[in-house]
């Protein structure tokens, strides 16, 4: 079954980092920017703007996030079974209650999509793996992922990968500026 996902079109990214800030806000306890930045354990963004190089050698921002691979190498590397497929269909979601912060998932992830921070959902642990959860909470409420909502340039879209391919829009979620092919 196909699931809607966040499609990244790095050629449209201007590097404003709105996606990152709104992502952290959406994953905060209070969900409001004005209060989220005062929370005792700060929420962390799950999308990051990496510095890439386009084929012409020009520095370009690259919005980088979890691709929710299937099969997912991070999930195969996760010893306590903290990366779960049963929280939201089609998404690989870290269960902070199970994560031990060992680092194996990031070792297995080729995309630099998993980071380690003190997580407000597991405050008793010093670090927990933090990655995109496809905003499944927001999706349940009929909202689209926060990063997509924040994107002003169309570099992030929420849709079906297949339809996107049909549209011939070129680059997919896997696309990266940094490849010098």
């Amino acid at each position: 079954m196909q699931h809607k996902t966040v499609i990244v079109r790095p050629e449209l990214c201007v590097g404003c980092m709105q996606c990152a800030i709104r992502c952290a806000q959406a994953h905060s306890a209070t969900k409001e920017l004005a209060t989220a930045v005062f929370e005792p354990v700060l929420a962390k963004p799950r999308i990051h703007i990496g510095v890439g190089v386009n084929p012409q050698g020009v520095l370009k921002p690259f919005p980088n996030k979890c691709r929710h691979c299937d099969p997912a190498p991070c999930q195969e590397a996760c010893m306590p079974g903290a990366i779960r497929s049963d929280i939201a269909e089609g998404s690989k979601v870290v269960d902070p209650a199970l994560c031990i912060g060992c680092g194996m998932c990031a070792m297995a992830c080729p995309y630099y999509a998993i980071r380690y921070h003190h997580d407000l959902h597991a405050p008793e642990r010093t670090i927990t793996a933090i990655k995109c959860d496809n905003c499944h909470d927001r999706q349940k409420k009929g909202q689209i992922p926060a990063c997509v909502e924040a994107c002003k340039t169309g570099a992030l879209e929420f849709g079906y990968v297949n339809e996107h391919i049909k549209k011939g829009a070129g680059r997919l979620a896997n696309a990266a500026w940094s490849m010098q092919s």
Binding site: G50, N64, P110, Y111, N174, S181
Partner: peptide
């Protein structure tokens, strides 16, 4: 590996490219 990646390992975009490797 772009020189940029080596120069800025904290912020560089990921190496993985178009080909789904997995």
């Amino acid at each position: 590996i772009p020189a940029r990646w080596l120069k800025n390992p904290r912020n560089a975009a990921p190496l993985a490219g178009n080909t789904p490797w997995y």
